[in-house]
Design a binder for these strands. Structure first.
Lengths: 242, 242
DNA sequence: CGCCCTTTCTGGTCGTACCAAAATATCTGC
DNA sequence: GCAGATATTTTGGTACGACCAGAAAGGGCG
């Protein structure tokens, strides 16, 4: 049951895995710089003494993982993956995990947890530029109240600023993951200027709490905001089922 | 309803992608229940009217993503992936992102962020069983002070309890991801009973703060603990370089 | 009935061949 | 001489067939 990866060079079945490891190492070592293109498959099969089948299998693996960008009939291009590439590698798996309301709720809970951390952090450590960015996002959000599509965009952008404040490149990637994975739930919701206004006001309260340097208040406002959003989603979802 | 991929030629290049989508859909729909085994490749190639090459490519993709478990000479087994399967799909990408000290720091910062949330939550909402679990983990940790390997295990276990308290299955997966990805940095550190005792005492202080239902104190103790751990790692790392 | 051996099945790898599109070389017209 | 059109080569995508080795299934013998 426990799949314990033992010797890395066991001739065990997977010939492609060796090639994958080797290519990863070479990319890692800079032998294939970022942006350069991999040798042709036919060269690789000579170099490694394997068939093209195996080469293609290895290339495909790396491509799916985001280390290579393999467009249909171009040479594979080496891509040092960003944090967002990591996210996209999860697509199919996450789709499964979100197949039930429970999975969505679990993911949403982690989002609440993260954003709570972010607003607390912002309330304590935000500098002038952060405040300015938040203010700008907030104003754009307010201006978009009549236009639900635009409001959705500015909504995401406002939350996105929160993820930027920590200046940790992992976080924006997580934000974009949340947006991508949770949007199916969100997109089916009816968009009303009334709801938009309520959401904007929630954003405003969060912003105010950050201005007040009050982490606890900011946390509370954010929780209220996201809990409310969750209720909206649930109502929409239940309506669809009923 | 049968997605007969004869007309899927329209798609550019990737014939395998269509098969992947189709198989994902069928797994998703329960047509291939969890734990069941996929039809033989030779059946699939008839069913979809494609060559075995493409079948194998699709199977391999799903396997790499964790939706299938494809051992060397067995039929692929359908696996509704857990949150941990998602983590393992990131292995190669994360390896890249952690190739420099910056990436490690960024990841570690998110760990601090998450665990801060967890201890705050624990301080506010932990129930008797949670406290008991923490207490047990703490005692095991204390008993392991003389044995550095065992101490490492109990250390992880103590933090793991924190991830369990929220009863969100995403979180333990994240914990195991942190352990997996950050352990290369950690494992090179010298293990001294003296350091073990300091770490244990940090755990104790965190536990006490949770007992006191004091989120702010718990947060502070945790930050001190993890910051200290980071400093240890840095010292080790700098020594290696110097 | 159970053990052992043989046959079949199945995935892993290889090799060849062909196609279509991209890249490159070549040619043509000005 | 050079730009643009054309022919050639390269290269990835797919198909087909073959072989191997281990696993599963079937059958014969004790």
């Amino acid at each position: 049951m426990a799949v314990v990866p033992q010797d890395t060079h066991k001739k065990n079945g997977r010939a492609a895995d060796d090639v994958v490891r080797c290519l990863v190492a070479k990319i890692h070592a800079g032998e294939y710089p970022d942006g350069s293109q991999l040798p042709p498959e036919r060269s690789l099969m000579e170099e490694y003494g394997i068939s093209r089948t195996v080469v293609r299998e290895a290339v495909q693996t790396l491509s799916r993982q985001g280390l290579l960008e393999a467009r249909p009939r171009y040479r594979p291009v080496v891509r040092k993956p960003g944090y967002d590439a990591a996210i996209s590698a999860l697509e199919n798996v996450v789709t499964h995990l979100l197949s039930d309301q429970n999975g969505v709720r679990n993911l949403f809970d982690t989002r609440i947890m993260i954003e709570v951390s972010l607003v607390r952090r912002a309330a304590r450590h935000a500098v002038k530029e952060d405040i300015a960015a938040l203010k700008a996002a907030l104003e754009a959000n307010e201006a978009a109240i009549p236009d639900s599509d635009l409001f959705y965009q500015t909504d995401r952008a406002f939350h996105g600023v929160l993820y930027d404040i920590a200046r940790n490149p992992v976080l924006p990637a997580i934000h974009s993951a949340y947006v991508t994975w949770l949007s199916p739930q969100w997109s089916q919701m009816p968009r009303l200027p009334q709801r938009n206004r309520e959401n904007f006001e929630a954003h405003q309260r969060i912003f105010d709490a950050i201005l007040l340097r009050d982490p606890d208040l900011a946390e509370q406002e954010l929780r209220d905001h996201l809990d409310s959003a969750w209720l909206q989603v649930c109502r929409t979802f239940d309506q669809d089922r009923g």
